[in-house]
Nucleic acid binder design. Structure first.
Lengths: 374, 374
DNA sequence: CTGTTAGCGCGTTCAA
DNA sequence: TTGAACGCGCTAACAG
């Protein structure tokens, strides 16, 4: 399959500098090594199949298949001839036919808002590592718009051969769950929880408590929150849960949690900057801000600086995630093991694929990393 | 294919809350809507095929296939019955069989050091957008180690059904080119050039000239360079070419380019910090530094601060790429259209796949973005 | 319009 | 050991 049998692009697709020049405008005929004997076969322009190899080697296709799969029950001499034929023809096994026959694709589908959220990219990193170690590759479905989201859930698994699905930072709706169920593929959620699916989640409420608790311990009493608008672009409800933890921490400390101190906006730096700005015009401005993500925290810092405030002198700021940026910016933050969560997700999914009994839920630990902004 | 026929995980894999409770411990039987008539068929535990659908609908498989592919020549009533059967059975077409039959997978393989280099991640973003708009998904092969690199080039296309390959920030060796040729798949390079392959590249030499030229225009005469060690982890020779441009700019301005001012190290912030530090101990320390990437530039700034230098007061710094971080850090840099390069790569590859004549080479424009570090 | 049939390329019995 | 034949699920060509 997928042999662009003879494209008009050979000029650009023939990276075999040591090829006989007289064929230069012919269809690509990969690895025509030993042209001395290459005239034995007509050199079909289509990609060679095991049948071609079998013919060339003078054996049956079964034997070729066995050689291909390192079966021990092939006599050395035949094995040798098969290998020679393979090299001669430049044979590569067709992955699709292989998959159809074996029922395996060694590919995992991943649905996530990778690029709008550095944290989900970092999770992807752990995922990629965990999967590739086990011989799987991942098929990426980025989700930035509602259309993409819909397409991802209904199309990914039904249009592509994947053995399982990982969904990052998105809590599937009931309809999406139904779509997933139709795919009949094991599915694992990362950075989201659902009672019907294995997942690796973060205790965001606790995280919110930790963050605001840290601020309280520093002596702050007027503490604002900057997070995601509700409903978020999608239901990244982590921000909502962190806000809940924030309020709880304030309540426990007997502090006020005025609604004017809760500023919700978009995910990125710019929007965070804008929604944070009015905080500093308040008659009683906050002395500290907990931002639901590091990216938003940076926005808050920018807003503060524009308002002539110094951080942490005039305003303390704590973020969430501990992405690379946090270290660079000297941002105090609540660290969650992003990369590790990807790995855990991979483990959970592979266990499910292999039918191994595994925990359905994994909760990742959180710690406050104190830097220069508090 | 890939039906985990009835895994021990049903407890976690049955996201159909509105299912009849008496079947709750049975194999997942996706979308068993209208259970009133569900007793018609024995509900095989394996996934239904078009044959099952055909039988259920009382038509031939050809008709089912036509309905599946929106062929106009199917009478409405039959079409209706087929749709009903599909819903009844929870049928989803097997992507592998579809691929084998059509010769298309709608997947593109991507080889790149995604996670060690923010710039390649950003390129991936453009790529992802460009491909998904055209109905392709991408199969990710991250490359962080030499082993991964070898595996990526020899395995990706031969073990997975991809219609083409994109290689980012890696210049294939001759052996790798041969492997690519064997795969018989159109291949496009992004952020690398090769005369045998279509590619979208950056004029790094020019970029180096621009960067150092900017510093010279600012009145600096002692300008150092911090970039990648040679040979780089892989041949990300962009750093090398930028160094060449740097030297050229100095030469043209009649300035010295002492070897002690050229500091080469790893790709990340920490290493850049370390290799940059000795610069500030020199009897005649530089007054400005051109770093081959923004990440390295941040490392240089950190080193300068640790040495008690202020930026840009005591030391000017210019980076390369203009990743998000640069804006946050207020870093002056040479901007290259990262995301756009991914899009261009996608275009080039899709053109090749579709057999359309397209330019073999695309060069991306560069501009100096002046911020607070120069 | 629609049912039937022949592949797509590979893995895997099942005899020999 | 090995070759031949069948099946994986779907599409497409062909006859009706």
């Amino acid at each position: 399959m997928i042999q662009p049998v003879s494209s008009p692009h050979d000029y650009a697709q023939s990276p075999m500098p040591r090829r006989a020049p007289e064929n230069d405008d012919q269809a690509p005929q990969a690895l025509s090594r030993a042209p001395a004997t290459a005239d034995r076969a007509p050199l079909p322009s289509r990609a060679p199949t095991i049948r071609d190899v079998a013919r060339q080697a003078g054996v049956g296709v079964g034997t070729v298949s066995r050689v291909l799969n390192d079966s021990p029950l092939v006599k050395p001499d035949k094995r040798e001839r098969v290998h020679a034929a393979i090299a001669e023809l430049g044979f590569v096994r067709n992955p699709t036919a292989h998959s159809l026959s074996t029922g395996r694709s060694h590919a995992i589908g991943v649905i996530a808002p990778f690029f709008t959220s550095p944290s989900s990219a970092e999770r992807l990193r752990g995922l990629s590592t965990g999967l590739s170690e086990r011989g799987y590759l991942l098929l990426l479905a980025d989700v930035e718009t509602p259309e993409q989201r819909a397409a991802a859930f209904t199309d990914l698994a039904s249009r592509h051969a994947v053995e399982g699905l990982i969904v990052i930072s998105i809590r599937p709706t009931d309809a999406e769950l139904a779509a997933l169920a139709r795919e009949r593929r094991p599915t694992v959620l990362v950075d989201a929880a659902h009672r019907a699916l294995p997942h690796v989640a973060t205790d965001d409420v606790l995280g919110g408590e930790l963050a605001t608790g840290h601020l309280i311990a520093k002596g702050h009493e007027r503490i604002a929150f900057v997070g995601d608008r509700l409903p978020a672009p999608f239901d990244l409800t982590s921000s909502e849960r962190r806000l809940r933890g924030h309020r709880r921490a304030l309540r426990r400390a007997g502090l006020k949690a005025p609604r004017a101190y809760e500023r919700l906006g978009g995910h990125d730096r710019e929007e965070a900057r804008e929604v944070a700005a009015p905080l500093f015009e308040l008659p009683e401005p906050p002395t500290a801000v907990f931002a639901a993500s590091d990216v938003q925290a940076i926005g808050v810092i920018e807003a503060a600086e524009r308002a002539g405030l110094r951080v942490p002198g005039d305003l303390a700021v704590i973020g969430f995630d501990d992405i690379d940026l946090a270290a660079v910016a000297g941002l105090t933050t609540v660290r969650q093991p992003l990369r590790e969560s990807g790995r855990r997700g991979a483990e959970l999914l592979l266990a499910a694929i292999e039918g191994v009994k595994a925990p359905v839920e994994a909760i990742e630990p959180l710690t406050v990393i104190e830097r220069r902004t508090t």
